[in-house]
């Protein structure tokens, strides 16, 4: 039986038993409001959970402080919802509360989501579920990248694609406290900025940031990633599907080209 189907069944059973859903994204009270003039407002209460796994050799005494900071910044960046125009999709029928498969429409979407963000520490891999988000903290990262100007940089953090696990160097995180948020926003679908004219942006990833702002487009893109699919708004509740996080993390952290140095005894 496919993992997705198992997750769907578990999710439905949890709902029927009135148990809390779990995973990186848990959404409740989802609904759509149509103003009849091409604008849909989406409502929902989301709980986002990021689990932090300390794999450092000598421990990470500032980890709690960094996690609290990261939780506060993620909460503040996601606050206020988002707005995106020019969304091409199927036409919404507010009476039937369904999308019409045969008609299309271009909408403006207002994301009116409430977010509760948890950043919690875990000590064992068995505390990770398949649909969790994870940030592993390591001693160092050997991986280097070349920016669009041809300059080489060491990586302070690496994220394994959208939705995937992230790995961060403890010492660099201490120097750049926003690095954990930056990596997590990769997980939520944002790309790096290298344009020297945008140094004030959080997703600027070279070494001379002047700020940590998020654009409306970026916020809208993250909201869309978190929601996943407009049709999901009709379901009322959901938790994100399994990305097989444990296996992805295992492959990612053991990939020699990434050059992670960490305490292997802690990776259990």
């Amino acid at each position: 039986m496919p993992t997705d189907l198992i997750d769907e069944l578990k999710s439905n059973i949890s709902l029927l038993q009135n148990q809390p859903l779990s995973g990186g994204i848990v959404a409740k009270n989802l609904r759509i409001s149509d103003n009849g003039s091409g604008e849909l407002t989406l409502y929902g209460d989301f709980t986002i959970t990021l689990k932090v796994l300390d794999l450092t050799t000598n421990g990470a005494p500032d980890l709690n402080s960094l996690m609290t900071f990261t939780q506060q910044v993620i909460t503040s960046k996601l606050r206020g919802g988002g707005y995106k125009s020019g969304i091409n999709f199927l036409k919404y029928n507010a009476v039937k509360k369904a999308f019409d498969k045969d008609k299309t429409w271009t909408y403006s979407i207002r994301y009116n989501f409430n977010f509760s963000v948890n950043v919690i520490q875990i000590n064992m891999l068995n505390q990770l579920r398949g649909n969790d988000f994870v940030l592993a903290v390591v001693d160092s990262i050997g991986h280097q990248f070349t920016d669009q100007y041809g300059k080489r940089h060491y990586s302070g953090g690496l994220t394994n694609g959208k939705g995937g696990p992230a790995v961060i160097t403890y010492d660099i995180w201490k120097k750049n406290r926003y690095l954990g948020v930056h990596e997590f926003f990769h997980t939520l679908g944002l790309d790096d900025i290298e344009d020297h004219g945008k140094k004030e942006r959080l997703m600027y990833h070279l070494d001379d940031n002047t700020g940590q702002s998020i654009s409306d487009t970026e916020r809208g893109d993250m909201m869309h990633f978190i929601m996943g699919d407009l049709r999901r708004m009709l379901k009322g509740n959901y938790s994100n599907v399994s990305n097989n996080t444990i296996q992805l993390l295992r492959i990612f952290i053991n990939n020699k080209t990434n050059g992670f140095k960490y305490n292997k005894a802690k990776f259990r």
Partner: peptide, 9 residues
């Protein structure tokens, strides 16, 4: 589909 790691300095 290539899971290319996204680096940060």
């Amino acid at each position: 589909g290539r899971n290319i790691p996204m680096p940060s300095h």
